[in-house]
Nucleic acid binder design. Structure first.
Length: 115
DNA sequence: CATATGACCTATG
DNA sequence: TCATAGGCCATAT
């Protein structure tokens, strides 16, 4: 894992619009990292505080937050997302409704293969 | 060098 | 809708 890949991940995450979410796997693909979704988690975990990344907009493929439900981080992430207008139902976000759908312009073609 | 451990994902039943 | 299994791979120990 090179710093370059971390940087790529941070760049993508920074592009998630206000009020939308993306999954770890989605970010991995947008960054050209294939299915290596775990790397996105590492990149966020190690992101320097000074770039103030909107990491709260990254959730898992089930539409849930990847923290223990009682943890401070879980609550903070949920509150921040709700403050952006995102609604939780039984601890889950409706991905069909809130998922960020980037256009083909600036991302690798593989990302759009399934369409 | 060898295991273990994750802010994960998909397929399957 | 859940639960499990197998895959994933950089860090940590």
């Amino acid at each position: 894992m090179t710093p370059t890949n971390y940087q790529r991940i941070w760049d993508i995450v920074a592009q998630i619009p206000y009020g939308r979410v993306a999954t770890y796997g989605q970010i991995a693909r947008l960054a050209g990292l294939g299915q290596r979704a775990r790397l996105v988690g590492y990149a966020l975990h190690h992101s320097p505080i000074e770039i103030e990344l909107a990491w709260h907009r990254v959730i898992n493929a089930h539409g849930k937050l990847s923290f223990p439900q009682r943890s401070k981080r879980y609550r903070r992430q949920q509150l921040t997302l709700e403050a952006e207008g995102i609604v939780f139902n039984n601890g889950r976000v409706d991905l069909d409704r809130y998922r960020w759908r980037p256009t083909t312009e600036e991302f690798p073609d593989e990302y759009f293969e399934h369409e």
